[in-house]
Simulated scan of single mutants.
Amino acid sequence: MKITICFTGLSPEPWVQGLQQAFPQAAVDAWAPGATQADHAIVWAPPQQFIDEQAGLKTLFNIGAGVDALLQLRLPAHLKVVRLDDAGMSVQMAEYVCHAVIRHFREFDGYDADTQAGKWSYRKPRNRADFAVGVMGLGVLGERVAKALQVFDFPVNGYSRSAKNLPGIRCFNGPQGLPEFLAATRVLVNLMPLTPETENILNQATLSTLQPGGYVINVARGKHLVDDDLIALIDSGHLAGATLDVFRTEPLPADHVFWQHPKITVTPHTSARTLREESIAQIVGKIQALQRGQSINGVVDPQRGY
């Protein structure tokens, strides 16, 4: 059995070495044009040439949480696209979102500005019952984030395509449930998969439905957000600000308005990074399960896009 690794913008060598140690029965290499056929591949942003040349692949393991870029390629019908279940990303995402929510709720940006100016300041404590947090997307990452937010006693809403039932979380689902979910939310956390249906979902109409003084945290994909609509709603005062980790163009262009806007916090797509050792262990386990004829989690439905 052969496993090949095809990364764009990342070094494959640590993954080759890690897989060889974890799975000595397999031949592992980094892909180069013209390479011999492999049974399984681990990829990040592979070119179409890789897909075309590796026609015998059985499975394509994506090291990121989202598979939207893969589904834009021409993939053979028999090829299983598999996303990682977690690989250490959910706890990182929960850390990031909780930090962003708490930083906004406790007005730490304001305290930072005051202390930098040498000012000893006081702000009246806010009522967390007034800061309902809505988690948009209740997959593995979204569910972990929603549960983490409950620890801090924020009211938590959840939205998903299909119905979910999570203890202590007010759940909404389907197109009919989206307006009510947004209207019940003051801090919106986007963790939706990117599909044709969800592209541009964070727009003037949806963001205007958030409660006055709303706040946006986007940790999913940059194409979910209509940048100009967010800016307009912040400048009008309907939204208090945003924390953004993902963007339509990455790295974020130096002249983009997000860099300098006083009510927007920018981070460089770092909310949840793939952990190599955990990912390798999970991928090896999935390949071994497939060899035994067992089903595995994480197989992507191309029609749904996740």
Rank of each mutant, 00 (worst) to 15 (best):
L239G: 09
I280E: 00
F247W: 10
P253K: 00
A281H: 12
L202V: 00
G214M: 11
T270R: 06
V187A: 09
G213D: 00
G168T: 06
P193D: 00
S279N: 05
L252Y: 03
P193A: 01
V284I: 10
Q282A: 11
R221C: 06
P179G: 11
L230W: 00
T195N: 04
I169E: 06
D245W: 07
A232I: 02
P251H: 12
Q288W: 08
N173Y: 15
G174W: 00
I280V: 07
F181T: 12
T270S: 11
N200A: 15
A289F: 08
P193V: 00
T270G: 08
A254Y: 12
H238S: 08
S271R: 13
W259Y: 09
Y215W: 01
T267G: 05
R276W: 10
G214F: 12
A183G: 14
P253C: 05
L210M: 12
P179C: 08
F247A: 02
L244A: 10
S271E: 03
E197N: 09
I287A: 00
P251L: 11
G237V: 07
L188I: 07
A281R: 15
N200R: 15
F247T: 05
Q176K: 13
P253I: 02
T206K: 14
A205F: 04
Q211G: 09
N190T: 06
P193W: 01
L202M: 12
L233S: 13
I169K: 04
F247Y: 13
V226P: 04
K286Y: 08
D235H: 05
I201G: 04
H256T: 06
V257A: 13
V257L: 07
F247M: 09
G177A: 05
A220P: 06
R276V: 07
A220S: 15
A272V: 06
L178A: 07
P196E: 00
G213Q: 10
T265R: 12
N173C: 11
I201M: 14
D255R: 01
T185Y: 03
E277I: 02
V266L: 13
L182C: 09
V284N: 06
N190M: 01
R170C: 05
P179Q: 13
P253S: 03
R186N: 02
Q291E: 15
Q211I: 01
Q211C: 05
I169T: 04
L233V: 10
N190V: 01
V216S: 11
L252H: 06
P193E: 01
V189Y: 13
I201D: 08
E250C: 08
K263S: 15
A281E: 15
S236P: 07
G213P: 11
E278K: 15
G237L: 10
G214S: 14
